[in-house]
Simulated assay, not measured.
Amino acid sequence: MKKSKILLGTVILGIIGLITVAADHIDAPAAAGTSADITDFYAFQAEDTDNLVFVANVQGLLSPTATSTTVFDENVLVEFNIDTDGDNVEDLVIQAIPKDGKMYFFGPIGPLSTGKNSNISTMSSIKGEVAITAYGSNAVIGTNNSGMKMFAGPRDDPFFMDFARYGEVVGGTAPGFNNPGADTFAGSNVLSIVVEVPKSLVGTSGTINTWVEAKVKQ
Rank of each mutant, 00 (worst) to 15 (best):
K5E: 14
K5D: 00
L8M: 09
L8H: 07
G9R: 00
T10Q: 12
T10K: 00
I15M: 14
G17Y: 00
G17Q: 11
G17E: 07
I19K: 09
T20C: 05
A22D: 12
A23Y: 04
D24V: 08
D27K: 07
D27G: 01
A31F: 08
G33H: 09
D37K: 02
I38V: 11
Y42E: 10
A43E: 14
A43G: 06
Q45R: 10
D50H: 14
V53A: 13
F54M: 11
A56F: 00
N57E: 13
Q59S: 12
L62Q: 06
T65L: 04
T65A: 12
T69L: 06
T69C: 07
V71N: 13
D73R: 06
E74F: 04
V76T: 09
E79Y: 01
F80S: 10
N81M: 14
N81A: 15
T84D: 10
T84W: 02
D85S: 05
G86S: 05
D87S: 08
N88H: 09
E90L: 05
D91C: 04
V93C: 06
I97R: 12
P98W: 08
K99H: 13
D100H: 03
D100F: 04
G101K: 06
G101V: 03
M103Y: 02
Y104T: 04
Y104W: 15
G107L: 12
P108Y: 05
L112G: 03
S113A: 13
G115M: 04
G115P: 07
G115N: 07
S118C: 09
S118P: 01
S118L: 03
S118I: 00
T122E: 10
S124Y: 04
S124V: 02
S124K: 03
I126E: 09
G128F: 02
V130S: 05
A131K: 15
I132C: 08
I132E: 07
A134D: 07
A134V: 00
Y135A: 12
A139F: 03
A139Y: 02
V140L: 14
V140A: 09
G142H: 09
G142L: 05
G142A: 08
N144M: 01
N144G: 08
N144A: 01
N145W: 14
M148N: 14
K149N: 10
K149A: 15
F151D: 08
F151A: 05
A152S: 14
P154A: 06
P154G: 04
P158N: 03
P158L: 04
F159K: 11
F160Y: 13
F160P: 00
F160E: 04
D162E: 11
F163C: 06
A164S: 12
Y166L: 13
G167T: 11
E168M: 14
V170K: 03
G181L: 01
G181H: 04
A182H: 12
A182V: 14
F185M: 13
A186Y: 07
S188D: 11
N189M: 01
S192Q: 15
V195I: 00
E196R: 14
K199T: 01
K199L: 12
L201A: 08
T204G: 09
T204P: 06
I208V: 15
N209T: 13
T210Q: 05
V212W: 01
E213M: 15
V216Y: 13
K217C: 05
Q218N: 12
Q218V: 04
